[in-house]
């Protein structure tokens, strides 16, 4: 194979380090498959690099910030570069949780009750009044998180109203918009989706059981700190329902090539859609490779498929 794959990772977002790990792992897998791989950061010479390469396939593995909000992909489209993953337009939609979650909800999928607000609203209208309104509407416990960061950065589970202002301040240190949503008790699962010629395919839902009880940054990126069960230890019908939710999200948001849906399954077996990632993690502790392998496929083969599929566009 003489296709050159440009792996784009790093960037200046809070998830830079995770992105570098994802980029490195994907590079290794694709090199093992015989592709010529060039790894690059999001930096000044990127446009030159793409222009100088012979019909490269760009694989953006940037997490957070401009890597997921569509900005980088907008530039790739400007360059007429072939790239793996969702378009700039659908990234803009899916990365803005204020828009994405209601769109997925319209397909009939349950989503948590939530409020999405920029911090100036609190300043202009009075925080205590607004927070009272929100907590009356959503109850406790609540999850507070920034809209523009993944990896559980800036994420707090609030069990007492006294902790809510602090949680808001933390979420807003990662960006100007925050999500406050009802906490859903249940089994945490993640479902990767990969596009094939015959349509998107949902891979086995992976159950996430952090030893500490919380799937925070430490639990995500310390090998051994979380047990993963793939497919999740749930009835077959529930697994199918999770897959259906992931596919509904992937389609509703117009996503391409690959995505990952994060879902909570209630004790009654109902999947509740939390969010969709257009740049799922590919690190050694990430869910997507695990799910693919538990389906009896090789992660490298699936990556190679994504490259070939993009090359044919």
């Amino acid at each position: 194979m003489d296709t050159t794959v440009i792996i784009l990772s790093g960037g200046l977002s809070h998830e830079r380090e995770i992105s570098l790990h994802s980029g490195h792992r994907v590079s290794e897998e694709l090199r093992g498959h015989g592709f010529t791989v060039v790894e690059t950061d999001l930096q000044g010479n990127l446009i030159e690099l793409i222009k100088e390469s012979d019909h490269p396939i760009v694989f953006p593995l940037l997490h957070g910030g401009s890597g997921e909000d569509g900005a980088v992909r907008e530039v790739l489209e400007l360059l007429d570069a072939t790239y793996i993953g969702s378009s700039a337009a659908s990234c803009r939609v899916s990365f803005d949780k204020a828009i994405a979650v209601p769109l997925v909800a319209q397909t009939g999928v349950r989503t948590p009750k939530r409020v999405v607000l920029p911090h100036d609203m609190f300043r202009d209208l009075g925080a205590s009044t607004l927070l009272d309104l929100i907590s009356t509407k959503l109850g406790l416990p609540l999850i507070v998180k920034p809209t523009m960061s993944g990896s559980a950065l800036g994420y707090t589970k609030v069990t007492s109203l006294d902790d809510l202002p602090g949680a808001m301040v933390l979420a807003y240190s990662f960006g100007r918009v925050a999500v406050i949503e009802e906490f859903i008790e249940g089994t945490e699962v993640a479902v990767p989706v990969v596009d094939y010629a015959d349509g998107p395919r949902a891979y086995p839902p992976v159950e996430i059981r952090p030893n500490s009880g919380v799937y925070d940054f430490e639990a995500r990126y310390t090998p051994g700190a979380t047990d993963f069960i793939s497919p999740a230890d749930l009835p077959e019908s529930t697994l199918d329902a999770c897959r259906a939710v992931a596919l509904a999200g992937h389609r509703a948001l117009g996503l391409r090539d690959l995505s990952r849906a994060d879902i909570i399954v209630t004790p009654e077996g109902e999947p509740v859609f939390l969010e969709m990632s257009v740049a799922p993690g590919m690190t050694d502790t990430s869910v997507l490779p695990l799910s693919i392998e538990s389906a009896g496929e090789s992660f490298a083969d699936v990556l190679a498929h994504l490259v070939r599929q993009a090359a044919e566009r």
């Binding site: 990896s151 559980a152 950065l153 086995p204 925070d216 940054f217 430490e218 995500r220 990126y221 310390t222 090998p223 051994g224 700190a225 979380t226 047990d227 993963f228 069960i229 793939s230 497919p231 230890d233 050694d284 502790t285 695990l290 392998e293 538990s294 389906a295 009896g296």
Partner: peptide
């Protein structure tokens, strides 16, 4: 599929106690 359970670190029970603080940090 066949169900698979992993914590991604086959040595996690083998480490010395003094490594307990050596974890990923945001």
């Amino acid at each position: 599929e066949k169900r698979r359970e992993t914590n991604l670190d086959m040595y996690s029970d083998a480490y010395a106690e003094r490594t307990s603080g050596m974890v990923a940090s945001a």
